[in-house]
Design a binder for these strands. Sequence first.
DNA 1: TAATTATGAGTGGTCTGACCACTTTGTAAT
DNA 2: ATTACAAAGTGGTCAGACCACTCATAATTA
Lengths: 214, 214
Amino acid sequence: MDQTNNPKKMFLEIVKQLRQLIADENVSVGGKLPSERELAERLQVGRSTVREALRSLELLGLIETRRGEGTFLSDYRKHRLVELLSTFILQESKSKEDVHTTREALEKDAIHTICMSKRLYALHIWDAFKEKLIEEDVVREDIIREIIIISDNRLGLKIWFLLKQFAGEPYQENMSLEEKTIWIQLLMALQNGEQQQALSLYNEWLLLLNRGDV
Amino acid sequence: MDQTNNPKKMFLEIVKQLRQLIADENVSVGGKLPSERELAERLQVGRSTVREALRSLELLGLIETRRGEGTFLSDYRKHRLVELLSTFILQESKSKEDVHTTREALEKDAIHTICMSKRLYALHIWDAFKEKLIEEDVVREDIIREIIIISDNRLGLKIWFLLKQFAGEPYQENMSLEEKTIWIQLLMALQNGEQQQALSLYNEWLLLLNRGDV
DNA sequence: TAATTATGAGTGGTCTGACCACTTTGTAAT
DNA sequence: ATTACAAAGTGGTCAGACCACTCATAATTA
C-alpha cells in the first residue's frame, strides 16, 4: 500500500484516487459518484478525509453535491477554475498580458496548422463562414473558436477556451466592418493554405483590436 | 432556518470568512494563520468544517500547512491553479499529438516574441548559450526552457512545463551534433531578431527530431 | 557556565461515532 | 390504483480521541 515515501498529504492522495476512480468507472458528466461512506470504505480512509478531498473538488466546481441525493460529476463548462484564477492570479497586470500572449499563440498555431494540413476542408465550410461574416453579426470569439476547432487540437481548444474568458468584452463584441474585411481575406488565405498571408492578416487584425479599444 | 434559497454550504462560508480574516488581520505572504482549533472557536464551527475549507484552499496552493507548525499564507506566485487546470484537461484529451502541437505552439511563440521584442538582450546571454552548446552536453528541454524564460511569458512557461512532462524521453536526451549546429544558428537568429530564419530553423529541428526517434 | 538532552505544549492529520436535514424508495393503508 | 407514511440512504456538522511532528523551554550533563 503505502510503499512510497508517504509523508504526503492523504487528502491529496484521495483527490488523485478520485480522479482515477472517475476515469476507471467511466463516470460521465452529471453522473453519480459513490457515497462518501462507500468511498471511505473503498479507499480505506476515514470519511472526513474523503470529505476534505471532495470539498476541495467542489470548490473547484468539478463536482456538485446535493444533500440527501449524492455527489455528482459536474459539467466541465461550469468549472470554477477560471473565476478562481481571476481572483487570485490575475492581480498582477503582467499576468493579464501573459494570458493574452498565450492565447494569441494558440490562435496563431491554429492558423498555421490549418494551412499546413494536407487535409482538404470542404469548400462549403469556408463559404459558410464568409457568408455568415457578411450577413450576420459575428462575435469575435465565435469565429476564432471555429478556426481552432478546425485545426483539430482539442487540448489547445480547451486551454484557449479558458484563457479566452479573460479577454473580457472585446472578445464578445461584434466585429466591425473593417474587421470583417480582414477576416474574409483571412478565410480565403486559410482556404488556399497561404500561411504567410493568413498570419499577416491575423496580425493586422490584432493591431486593429489594440488600437480600437482596451 | 431561513433558507432564502441560500443553500449555503457552511464550508464555502468559511472559505469566505477566512479570506476576510486574512484581509482584516493583514496576514502577509508567508504569515501564519490561527490554528485550526482557534479558527473553529472563533468562527463558531467544528474543526472538521474549518479543515474542509482549509484543505480546499490548500489544494489551490493558496495556503501551506506544515504539521506541527501551522498554516501559512503561501506565496500566491506559487499557485497551483494552472497545474490543476492542466491535469484535468489532460485527463480527457489523451491525444499525445495535441500535447505536442500545443507545446510546439508555445515554443514557437517564445521565439517569435523574442525576435519581435524591442528589448535588447545582453550579448553575453547568447554567447553563453552558444558556448554551452559547443562545450557541454545539453539536454533538449534545458535550452528550450531558457528560451521561454527569456520570452518572459510566465503563464506560457507554466503550461509548457506541464506539457513538457508528457513529451517523454526525447526531451530529456542530449542533443546530437547535428541538432547543436541547428541551434547555434537559431540562437544567432534570435540574437539578431531574424524571426523568419529562427522559426525556419526551429521547424528544421523538429523534423530532425521526428525523423530520429519516435 | 555552556552545551546537550528531555519534556511538554501546540499544531496539523486522521479516524470514529454520533446526530441532523433532506431525498428517495418501498411498503402499508386507504 | 392511489395515497400516506416509515425506513433507508446521503450529505452536513460536530465532538472527542489519538497520532506524528515541531519548537521553545526546562532539566540535565559536561
